[in-house]
Amino acid sequence: MGFPVSLRVDDEDVPERAADEVFAWLREVDARFSPYRPDSEVCRYDRGELARQELSDDLVEVLDLCEHYRRATGGAFDARLPGRGLDPNAVVKGWSVQRAADLLRAAGARRFVLNAGGDVVAAGGPWRVGVRHPEHADKLCAVLEVTDGAVATSARYERGDHIVDGRTGRPATGLLSLTVVASSLTEADSVATAAFAMGAEGIGWAASLPGCEVFAVDADGQVLRTEGFPVARQDPAPG
C-alpha cells in the first residue's frame, strides 16, 4: 500500500503466526483495494464491471465510510475527485490496519504497537508516540502517551500537496499537519485526512467529534490542540 509497516508484540504467549496473519491481511488489502491495480475490486467496480450488489462486504463498508465523511465535510473529503478514478485509500489505510490490530487481539495479544507509515494502533500501554515536526524531519513537535488507542497524522511533508479539497479540486494548503487520537485507527486516520482537506476549519470540525483529540499546526506555524490531547512531552512549537 506504499508505506512501511512495523509491529512490536510484548506478549510472550502470542503465536508467531499472528504476525504472519497481520501481514498477509495487509497484502490482501493491497491486492483488493488498490486503485493502481487494474484487477483489484476497486478498479473493477470503478470501470463498471461489478455492480454494487456484487461487491464484498468489506468494500461496501469502506465505500459507506467514504460517503459518510464526504457528507460530514461538505464534500471536502471525496473518494471520487473530478478527473480521477475511485480512490478510497484515505479510508482503506486506517480501516485495514485497525482490522490487523483486531486480528492481533483475537490471537491473544494485549500489549503491542502496530505502526503503518507513522499511523499507530497501540494497546496495553502506556506507549510513547512521537509526532513529527512538519517542517523539520529530524525534530518532533509533540510526544504522546497512549495506553489503548490510535494516532494518525495527515501532513504535507511526505508526499507534498497530495490531499485535495474536493470542494475546489485544489490541494488543501491551510494546514501543515493535523494529528488525531481516537479509539480506532479507522476513525483517527479518516478524520485526520478529512479535516486536513477542509483546511483551517477542519480543526474545529475534528475537535467537535466525540472521542477525538486533535493536535494541528496551521500554515503559519501556529499550534492548536484540544485540552484532552494526551501529550507526554512537547518540544518547542514550530516556528
Rank of each mutant, 00 (worst) to 15 (best):
F3R: 00
F3C: 05
R8Q: 11
R8F: 06
V9S: 07
D10L: 15
D10Y: 13
D11T: 07
D11H: 04
E16L: 14
E21D: 14
V22S: 00
A24V: 15
L26S: 03
L26Y: 07
R27T: 12
R27E: 14
E28F: 10
E28A: 10
A31R: 15
A31K: 14
F33W: 13
S34K: 11
V42S: 05
R44A: 13
R44I: 03
R44N: 04
Y45D: 05
E49R: 10
A51N: 09
D58S: 10
V60S: 06
E61M: 08
E61T: 15
L63H: 01
C66R: 07
E67P: 04
G75Q: 09
A76W: 05
F77Y: 12
A79L: 04
A79G: 01
A79M: 04
A79T: 01
R80C: 11
R80Q: 12
L81D: 02
R84A: 14
N89H: 00
N89F: 10
V91C: 08
V92S: 07
G94W: 01
W95D: 03
R99L: 01
L103Y: 07
L103I: 15
L103G: 07
R105L: 07
R105Y: 10
A106L: 03
A106D: 02
G108V: 12
R111L: 10
R111I: 00
V113A: 14
G117R: 13
D119F: 10
V120E: 05
V121E: 07
A122Q: 03
G124D: 12
P126N: 09
R128M: 14
V131P: 06
V131N: 14
R132D: 01
R132L: 11
H133K: 12
H133S: 06
E135G: 13
L140V: 06
C141N: 12
E145Y: 04
T147E: 14
D148H: 13
A150F: 01
A150W: 08
V151S: 09
V151I: 15
A152Y: 02
S154I: 12
R156C: 04
R156V: 07
R156S: 10
Y157V: 12
D161Y: 11
H162L: 13
V164M: 06
R167G: 04
R167F: 09
G169S: 06
R170L: 14
A172N: 11
T173G: 07
S177K: 07
L178R: 03
L178N: 00
T179E: 04
V180S: 04
A182D: 01
S184G: 09
S184T: 15
S184H: 09
E187Q: 05
E187D: 09
A188C: 08
D189P: 07
V191R: 00
T193Q: 07
A194T: 05
M198P: 00
M198Y: 02
M198F: 02
A200Q: 13
A200D: 09
E201K: 08
G204A: 09
W205I: 10
L209S: 07
G211W: 05
V214L: 06
D218S: 08
D218R: 12
D220H: 11
G221C: 07
Q222N: 04
L224T: 08
R225A: 15
R225F: 08
R225W: 12
G228H: 08
G228C: 10
F229T: 05
P230S: 05
V231M: 03
A232K: 02
R233M: 01
G239R: 13
